[in-house]
Design a protein around this nucleic acid. Sequence first.
DNA 1: CGCTTAATTGATCAGGGTCAATCGTGGTGG
DNA 2: CCACCACGATTGACCCTGATCAATTAAGCG
Lengths: 226, 226
Amino acid sequence: MTAQMADKSYSPAASLEARTAWMAGRAEPLRAAGTVIQVAASREVFAEGGDTDVFYKVVSGVVRCCKFLSDGRRQIEAFHVAGDLFGFELGQERLLSAEAVSDCTLVSYRRRSIETLAQKDQTISHQLFQYAMQNLAQAQDHSLLLGRRGAAEKVASFLLGWAKLSADKRVLHLAMTRQDIADYLGLTIETVSRSLTQFERDGVIALPYSRQVKILNIDALEDLAA
Amino acid sequence: MTAQMADKSYSPAASLEARTAWMAGRAEPLRAAGTVIQVAASREVFAEGGDTDVFYKVVSGVVRCCKFLSDGRRQIEAFHVAGDLFGFELGQERLLSAEAVSDCTLVSYRRRSIETLAQKDQTISHQLFQYAMQNLAQAQDHSLLLGRRGAAEKVASFLLGWAKLSADKRVLHLAMTRQDIADYLGLTIETVSRSLTQFERDGVIALPYSRQVKILNIDALEDLAA
DNA sequence: CGCTTAATTGATCAGGGTCAATCGTGGTGG
DNA sequence: CCACCACGATTGACCCTGATCAATTAAGCG
C-alpha cells in the first residue's frame, strides 16, 4: 500500500529545504541514515494499524496525518511540511494514517536503526524528544481549537497557522482541499467555504483562486481568531 | 500562587500507587529525586505562562491540565491520576495550567536536576520520552473526540475512558464536576447532564449520586461511544 | 470540448447552546 | 436539631450555529 515512486539512497546535498535555520537544523543528525522516496498527491504513506518500523521526514510537499472513526468520519491531526518529522510511534501498531496532500519528497528512516544510533548520539534522541514535545504542544493547541472555538475562529486560526508555515505570509497557497481543511477543523466543507467568502466580503482576505488566499487585513484576521 | 500545604523530602516507600505494574513502573527512576507536596482541591498547581523549572507526578488525587482563551473559555486537555507525570515542558513558559480536581499528593521534580540525571541514565530520558509520546497519543485521540464526535458519543467515551483508570470498572467515582467534564469534552454542563440522564433512562448506567456512575450495560455504552 | 472533481451558494433542519427555574445536598449557625 | 444558604446538578423552553440536502458554478484534465 505504501506508495513509493522512487527509492534511492539519500545524499544530504539533494535536500532543498528552504526553511529557517532552526527548522532545517532540527533533524540534521538523522540525515545520513535515510532513504528518499516520492509519494504522489493523495497516495497513502502509511495506514492506521500498520507497522511502525519506519518513520519519515518531509523534504518537500505536504502530508496529512489523520484518524478515522468506524463510520468514516475523519479528523486530520496535523499537516506536515518541509522539515517536519512524522510517523514516529512507540507502539507496534500505528495510531494514525498519513497521506500525501500534494506530490511529496520524503526521507524514510528505519526506526530500529535510529533507535540504535540514539543510544550513542544524544543529539539524535534529543531531536526525537523535541519532535514529540512539539507535536504534543501542537496537538494541545488543536484541542483548544476543536473544543472551544466557533467556525469563523477556526478558519481564521487555520489561515494564520498556515501563514506561519508559508514563505510569503501574505499570499498563501493552500495545498489542501476544502475537505482537508474541514476535517482539520472539525467542520464541513460548506462551513469552511462560507467562512472564507464571508472573510472576503468583509475585506479581510481575497480569494483570487480557490487555493490562493491573500491576507488583506491581518489584524482583523487575528481578531477573528479570537 | 502554587499551593503547597506540606513539603518534605520524598521517601519512596511512602508512595501508595495502587495501579498496574506497568503504570507504577513508568516513572520509577525518578523517585529518589522528588519532593512531596499536598495540594487542596481546586487549588492551582501552576499557571499558563509560568516558569517550567519543575514538573510533577501524581501520587494520589486527580489533576486537570487546561488551556484558556482570552474570554475565559476553557479546554481541559487531560485529567491526571496516580502514576501520571504532568507539567514537563521544553520551552521556558508553560503552555498549560494545572489545578487539583480533588485533594492531591504530588511529587515535584526540578527539571534541571532531572535533565542532568537523564544525560547519564538512559532509563530516565526514556521515561520522559515515553511520557511525551503517551501524552501525544492521548491528545490525538482527544482531537478526534472533540472534532468528530457528537455529544452522547463524547460522554460515553469519557465514561469508558474514566472506567479504564478506575479500580472498579463498574462503579465509577467521578472526582470532577460536570463543568470539568464539559470542558474536557467541549460541551456545556447542561448537555453533559442531559446525556447522562438519557443514558440512565435507557438503562445503560445508574446515577445513585451525581458523582457516582454505575455502568449497567457496558456493551451499550461502547456502542454509544461509536 | 466534455467529463470529473472541487467549490460555492441557497434552503432547511437539528444538535447543542443559552437562559432561567427548580431541585438536591451538604455545611453552618441560630 | 433543623432552618437557611450556597453551590452543583437537573430540567425545561427557546434559539442559533453549523450540518444537511440540493443545485449550480468553477476548475482541471484527457
